[in-house]
Amino acid sequence: MNWKRLAIVFGLGVPLIAVLAYGFTRDPREIPSPLIGRPAPPFTVQLFDGKELSLADLRGKVVFLNFWASWCPPCRAEARMLEASWKDHQGQDVVFLGINMQDREAAAREFLREFGITYLNGIDAGSRIAIGYGVWGLPETFFIDPDGRITYKHIGGLDGPEVIHAKLDEARQGRLSGREGKGDYRSVQ
């Protein structure tokens, strides 16, 4: 009788604790992206210099697509590193494209000036592009292969230029990384 009772308690209790342990150690804000391995959603963005850029024009190149806002500290933290990484890869078959969202234009321009950013940057008014990419935190970075397919997604600040280099290489070869990367992030507004 005692053994039976013990077995029932363990049979119910252990799975319950396991479920709770799994649930409590997970980041409840995290929204796994269904986009990895899928074609990158097409968009046309207005650049800060007034020109328009369409993602379709970048077919054949590896695209480093970074969503940011000037009010987001992790975006500031990675800004210099991104620019340095862009300088490293400039001239190759790589395009860096920043998408500014949920921001004021003046503040965004000040951000670009402050960090001396030279790669392409555009404004996503109304966050339509961001919603198209399922953005929920900032910064968020997508790597797109020459065929226009998303190969990797990183939520939050990128750790260093090595990660960018490795993931650009993978994208160039069209290799997918199913696991999303994660760093310090801020929820969108």
Binding site: P28, S187, V188
Partner: peptide
């Protein structure tokens, strides 16, 4: 996606408005 426990109809966050 911002408030998690509210619907897009109820949330006053910028993303929900968008």
């Amino acid at each position: 996606p911002v408030c998690q426990n509210l619907s897009v109809a109820e949330s006053s966050s910028e993303l929900a408005q968008e």
